Amino acid sequence: MAGGMSEQEPAGYAPSPELIERIARDTIAKLPPRFRDHLGDVVLLVEELADEETLDALGIEHPLDLTGLYHGRPLGEKSSMEAGSPPDRIHLYRRAILEEWIETDVRLDDLVRHVTIHEIGHHFGLSDEDMHALEDAAGE
């Protein structure tokens, strides 16, 4: 589709947080069951930008340089003694995603899928190669 989006916002409007969340949730729904079934407790958040504390902790100077973040411990590092700890979270940063979308001319749904898979990959402790294979599987 011309313009790079499979779902459209009204002409002249930036894609909404709801659209980005819908694409991310659709991506999660298309994951192979062995991954999708282990994401039940992970919270998906679409925020405008990362806060200063997050940027400082990661050594990132500009908020538009961070499109997503997994906050939690990879599954392989969790223990049953952690009951009661807050759920893991996947943060998608809308304005940074939109900036990258504009700069790269990648389809918005492809970009959101990429960022979502990358952050899910951190939840599972996957390598970059494994994340690319998972992204291919979720794109079908």
Rank of each mutant, 00 (worst) to 15 (best):
E82G: 13
P33W: 03
M81Y: 12
I97L: 13
R113Q: 11
A133Y: 11
V46S: 14
H123P: 02
L39E: 09
R36N: 11
E7S: 05
R107T: 01
A50Q: 10
H114Q: 10
H71N: 03
L45S: 04
G72R: 03
K30A: 15
T27I: 09
D130R: 13
E82V: 06
P10V: 00
E52L: 11
E21N: 10
A83E: 11
T27K: 15
L45H: 05
F35H: 12
E103A: 15
F124M: 10
D41R: 15
A96E: 06
A137C: 02
R89P: 00
D26M: 11
D109Y: 00
H38D: 15
S85H: 04
R113T: 07
V112N: 04
F124D: 09
A14T: 00
S79Y: 01
L58H: 02
A50K: 11
L19S: 08
A96V: 09
G125A: 01
I117W: 10
P74L: 01
E48Q: 12
G68P: 03
M81T: 12
F124S: 06
L98P: 15
A83S: 07
V115Y: 07
I28F: 15
E48D: 14
A133W: 10
H122P: 00
D56E: 12
L44R: 05
R34G: 01
H122T: 00
D109Q: 03
E129K: 13
H122C: 00
L49G: 01
D128K: 14
H114P: 01
R22I: 00
V112P: 03
P32K: 02
P10S: 01
L108M: 05
D65I: 01
G68Q: 01
A50S: 13
D65T: 04
A29S: 15
E7L: 05
L45A: 02
A133C: 11
D88R: 08
G40Q: 12
Q8N: 03
P10T: 00
T116E: 13
E129T: 10
E82A: 14
I28C: 14
W101L: 05
G40N: 13
D56I: 05
R25I: 11
P86D: 04
E7G: 02
P33N: 04
G3T: 05
P86L: 05
P33I: 04
E129Y: 10
V115P: 02
E140I: 09
L44A: 06
S127P: 04
L49S: 08
E9V: 05
M1S: 12
M81D: 14
P10A: 03
H114F: 11
D56R: 13
S79L: 00
P10D: 00
L98Y: 06
H114V: 01
E135I: 06
D136N: 08
L75K: 07
I117G: 04
A133I: 09
E99R: 07
A50E: 09
H62W: 03
L126K: 01
H123Y: 09
V46C: 15
R94I: 04
T67A: 11
V106C: 03
Y70W: 07
D130Y: 12
R36P: 05
L19K: 07
